[in-house]
Amino acid sequence: MKKLALLVILLISFTGTAFSQSSMDEEIFKTLRGNASMNVVIVVAMLILAGIFFYLFRLDRKLNKLEQEVNEGKKS
């Protein structure tokens, strides 16, 4: 979980540099598109990472179970 948090922080720091160069203040644009649709990119990136990590954690749990089975098999 720590790794995930680290990655999230890293990602956010990158995006920060990506659009801190501009100062937007047009109201319509802001209300309509947020920060130039950057939020969409962040949500998409987070979802992909969350999905892949969730899948890997599930795989990890499966492997743990398998290891237990294998070990028990050896003992008996």
Binding site: L11, F14, T15, T17, A18, F19, Q21, M24, E26, I28, F29, A36, V41, A45
Partner: peptide
């Protein structure tokens, strides 16, 4: 991921 997020967007006219 690095280049995809760190490269800025080209200037343009919004409205």
């Amino acid at each position: 991921i690095y280049a995809g997020l760190a490269t800025p967007l080209a200037p343009g006219i919004i409205s």
